[in-house]
Computed example of a mutant assay.
Amino acid sequence: MIIKEYRIILPISMEEYPIAHSYTTTAVIRQDLALGDDIEISKSEPVTNIRLPDGKRTSGHFVHKVYHLRRQVPKWAKVLAPKELLVLHEKTWNAFPYSRTEFSNPEFLKEKLSLRLDSICAPDRGTSENIHCLTPAELAQREIIYLDIAGEQIPRKEYKAECDPKIYRSTRTGRGPLVGDWQHSVSPVMCCYKLMTMDFKWLGLQDKVEKYAYEAERKVFCQFYRQMFCWIDQWYGLTQADVRAMEEDTCRQSCSRANRPQGLFGSKSAVLLPARAARLVPESKSLSLPLDPSTGF
């Protein structure tokens, strides 16, 4: 089993985060509608009794997605894996500032795969020592990873200057570029704490799969939050109604491409979305539509 806690400091406020997250989610989906694997959103509904890490209960939103993976898996997996293995179920419980996502493969792996992502946002600089309320045994296993959205190494083929926090400056807020010791001096500031817990029980493949999952999640987190910051002039000042309208328009586009019925908000109907776009989104607030998975990851 691996337990990794990513701490991602962001130069935005807790109040701004829900709009920033929803906008970035929808913008990424619009970018990638023609790319990636399909996702079936099989259920999206309000829920109560979500258990928080401290044991308290709250209400929020539940989304169940089924990923039909093809292009978003490594070559060795395509060669070795039966088609049933490339169907991934994702169940997400959203209750900002907390979200929990559980992944499973009931068609093939069943109990052999256990992957969970818990995300908590806090108005600090990554200084909360045990925000996920881990046990002493879990703390002993936990590895803390500070992810610097400006300092992370980006492969040349994936680098985009317009999404580089080291050179971007917001004209509307004056924030950026993020250079030097920015994580200790920037204001406003908040931190996303993302706890990844994984146990893959398959002799001979365990280490390879767990390593791939760790690397994939780190890449997803980095790319998404770099975009969130560098798109600040696009989402800054928007209202929930503005974002809602954008999400509805994007859902109509995706339904049209997939030849699926529209008007799915809050329903149990299914809609297909590109997996590459959807997997860039770690968590959501209840105001968001079922277009943004958690990576709560």
Score class of each variant (00 low, 15 high):
F224W: 02
S284H: 10
D242L: 05
D199P: 00
R276T: 15
L178P: 00
V189R: 12
A245K: 08
D181I: 06
R244N: 15
P188V: 12
R172Q: 13
A241S: 10
Q223M: 06
Y193H: 05
R226A: 06
W202Y: 05
K285H: 13
Y212M: 01
P261S: 11
P293A: 15
S256Y: 12
V186P: 01
Y225K: 02
P290A: 12
Y168P: 00
L203H: 05
L280V: 03
Y212I: 00
F297K: 05
I232T: 10
G237I: 13
V179I: 14
E210R: 08
R172I: 13
R226E: 05
E247H: 04
G174S: 05
R172V: 13
G176L: 06
L264N: 04
R279N: 11
S294F: 09
G204Q: 07
M198A: 10
S288G: 10
W202F: 07
I232K: 09
R172F: 07
C222M: 06
R244M: 13
M198T: 08
R169Y: 00
S286H: 13
F229K: 02
W235D: 01
R257M: 14
Q253P: 02
L291F: 10
R276P: 03
M198F: 07
Q240H: 14
V271I: 15
C251T: 09
T250D: 08
G180W: 10
P261G: 11
A270C: 11
F224I: 04
F224S: 00
K194L: 07
F229E: 01
V209K: 02
T295Q: 12
L272Y: 08
M228P: 00
F221H: 01
T197L: 01
L280G: 09
L280A: 11
Q206K: 08
C230G: 03
V281F: 12
V220N: 07
E210N: 07
V179P: 01
R169M: 05
C222E: 04
K208P: 00
P282K: 01
A258C: 11
V209W: 05
F221S: 01
M198W: 03
G296S: 12
K194D: 02
A245C: 05
R175P: 00
R244E: 15
P282Y: 02
R257G: 05
P177T: 07
Y168E: 03
Q206P: 00
N259P: 00
R257V: 14
L238K: 15
L280T: 06
E215S: 07
P274S: 14
C192R: 12
E217F: 02
L238C: 12
L273Q: 03
D292A: 11
A277Q: 01
R252A: 13
A216C: 02
G296L: 09
F221E: 00
S254P: 01
E248G: 03
L178K: 01
A245I: 09
V209N: 04
W182P: 00
T239M: 04
E247F: 03
N259A: 14
F265R: 15
K201A: 09
W182F: 07
C222L: 05
C230E: 03
K208S: 03
A216Q: 05
A241W: 05
P293M: 13
R226W: 04
T197D: 03
Q253A: 15
A241Y: 03
R244Q: 15
E215Q: 08
L195H: 01
M190C: 09
P274D: 07
P274C: 10
